[in-house]
Amino acid sequence: MSVEMILNGRLWVLRENGKLFSDIDTDMIYHNAHLAVTDIDKMGQFAFGNLEGYKDFADKAQSGDLVLAGDNFGSGSSRQHAVDCFKALGVQTVIARSFGAIYKRNAINSGFPIIELPDLPDDLFSNFEIAELNLEAGVLSAGDNRFQGNPMSEVARDIYLAGGLFQYAETM
């Protein structure tokens, strides 16, 4: 897997009732019925399988896609599956106004880049437009629109560049 600091791709803007979808918990991302799966390649089919309006996400997602959500993405359980299912589909990143704390760690540790955009307006970005995410700067842009969020933290960047926590440990 190549490690890039600028990601380009089609942007899924997750919405509920017209607003950015908030409080998407790990059971909506990856339902507990499939927790016994340990092979990452088999996790992709269950991504958002319990999220209203997006249950067909796994069929429609394309490798290279970016995902954008509202507040508190990934709250709930500690399951790594909720990160790995996106990696299995080739989704490059999840961007959100904020993340659940455990989800954030899990993403960082498995080398899956995530960016927080606090206070992002609900309607700045459109579904399926081609967007660019600059991880170093924490900036999401598409067309004429640009939003400055939180840059990747130093630890997150180091682990991401190494390819994951264990790979990072080898560099220490």
């Binding site: 359980s77 500690s78 399951r79 790594q80 990160v83 455990i102 760690r105 899990n106 540790n109 498995s110 933290s153 630890v155 994951g164 926590l165 264990f166 440990a169």
Partner: peptide, 21 residues
């Protein structure tokens, strides 16, 4: 106390440490 994913926990098993902000 903190719940973590399987990567973190494996790392804690092996090294006795985790990083934390």
């Amino acid at each position: 106390g903190q719940g973590m994913g399987d990567v973190d926990i494996a790392y804690a098993f092996k090294t006795g440490k985790v990083w934390f902000e």
